[in-house]
Computed example of a mutant assay.
Amino acid sequence: MKHPIRIAGGTLALAAAILTSLFAHAHGNVVPQAVDTTGLPVLGDKWRDENPYRTNKLALKIGTSAYTQNCARCHGLDAVSGGIAPDLRLLDRDCNGIKNETKKQACYKEMDNYYLTSIRHGKVRNGAVYMPPFEGVFNQEAMWAIKTYLESRRSVE
């Protein structure tokens, strides 16, 4: 006959507390990390309505690092969501199938606007913060560099 393993209530509570703290610590630092945009063309104070760095290789490099340090904890490594937050490879998926190139570019511009609004102002529903605002934390150059990275990860699904 097998006997169940008995753990005193205090020991079980202590084990649960240690396990919980390990998971919380593993989540990492949730303070946004600075993004060094040195070398990117300065965009100034007027916010752009579409990504000016779409083909800029330095922006891709900076955006990759910035995404990994600041966005991956919620949106997933390599922009592949683990379910906590939206999969950003699919951000502009509705544009991908558009055959008319003018309409397709207009769609991408609209998605750029949606992205910029989201990253600048965050996402709040029913008083709950789903994504914090990053305006004042990241400059415009950093935000567009991250978008450049996301475009490199774009899914055609």
Rank of each mutant, 00 (worst) to 15 (best):
M1Q: 09
H3W: 06
H3E: 12
R6L: 12
I7S: 06
A8K: 13
G9Q: 06
G9T: 04
T11R: 12
T11K: 13
T11Y: 10
L12R: 12
L12Y: 08
A13P: 00
L14C: 09
L14H: 02
L14M: 13
L14G: 05
A16H: 01
A16Q: 03
A16F: 09
I18Y: 06
I18D: 05
L19Y: 11
A26Y: 10
A26C: 02
H27P: 00
H27S: 10
G28T: 11
N29Y: 04
V30I: 12
V31S: 06
P32Y: 09
Q33V: 15
Q33S: 14
Q33G: 06
A34T: 13
V35S: 02
V35I: 14
T37K: 03
G39M: 12
G39V: 09
L40W: 02
L40R: 03
P41Q: 10
V42D: 09
L43D: 02
G44W: 04
G44L: 07
G44Y: 05
D45G: 15
R48Y: 04
R48G: 00
E50Y: 10
P52C: 05
R54Q: 12
R54S: 10
T55P: 01
K57D: 14
L58P: 01
A59F: 02
A59E: 03
K61A: 15
S65R: 12
A66I: 09
T68Q: 14
C71P: 06
H75I: 05
H75E: 09
G76S: 11
D78T: 11
D78P: 00
A79L: 03
A79M: 04
G82M: 06
A85E: 05
P86E: 10
L90F: 06
L91G: 05
D92Q: 12
D94N: 13
C95N: 07
G97I: 12
G97W: 09
E101D: 14
E101M: 10
E101C: 00
T102L: 11
K103E: 15
K104P: 02
K104M: 11
K104N: 08
A106N: 13
A106R: 11
A106D: 14
C107N: 11
C107E: 09
C107F: 12
Y108K: 14
E110N: 09
E110Q: 12
M111A: 10
N113E: 13
Y115M: 05
L116Q: 04
I119D: 02
R120Q: 13
H121P: 00
K123V: 15
K123W: 15
K123T: 14
V124I: 14
R125I: 08
N126D: 15
A128Q: 14
V129C: 04
V129W: 03
Y130V: 00
F134P: 00
F134T: 00
E135R: 11
E135C: 01
E135I: 10
G136S: 08
G136Y: 08
V137F: 04
N139H: 08
N139Q: 10
N139Y: 05
N139F: 06
Q140L: 07
Q140N: 07
M143T: 12
A145H: 02
A145C: 07
K147N: 11
T148F: 03
Y149K: 04
L150T: 11
E151Y: 07
R154D: 03
S155C: 05
S155V: 00
V156T: 13
V156I: 09
E157S: 07
